[in-house]
């Protein structure tokens, strides 16, 4: 156990480097990609909102019915989930459309 901790201390720079790299790549994707907000990527579009809803929401909690909130309330909820659940803009858009269609 101590060896693991010492290793963690020694390699503390590695997680930091990974995270910094992620930030940089994410920034590049967001800015250089010049993608319009909510534009749907091919893979995500193939899945559809219902499937993305099941895959992403179910990973943490039971799936709540689309009729539980109004469309306007789902927009607020999904903004919360987009941040805490690390949803891509495509997933966010697709899932939100699905939820609003069921209200």
């Amino acid at each position: 156990m101590n060896k693991f901790i010492q290793m963690g201390s020694r390699w503390i720079g590695l997680p930091g480097a990974i995270i910094i790299s992620c930030v940089a790549v994410s920034w590049l994707i967001g800015c250089a990609g010049n993608k319009q907000s909510g534009e749907v990527a091919v893979g995500t579009r193939e899945k559809g909102g219902a499937q993305l809803w099941a895959e992403n929401c179910q990973r943490c909690h039971t799936m709540r019915s689309p009729s539980e909130y109004s469309g306007a309330k789902w927009e607020v909820v999904m903004q919360h989930m987009r941040v805490i659940g690390n949803l891509t803009p495509e997933e966010h858009k697709q899932i939100l459309e699905f939820l609003k269609s069921g209200t």
């Binding site: 995270i19 992620c22 930030v23 790549v25 994410s26 893979g43 941040v83 690390n86 891509t88």
Partner: peptide, 17 residues
């Protein structure tokens, strides 16, 4: 905190700093 997500094909990488 600075957080986000990087889609890599069918996979996804999440990060927070």
């Amino acid at each position: 905190q600075l957080r986000g997500v990087i889609p890599i094909g069918p996979t996804k990488l999440e990060y927070v700093a």
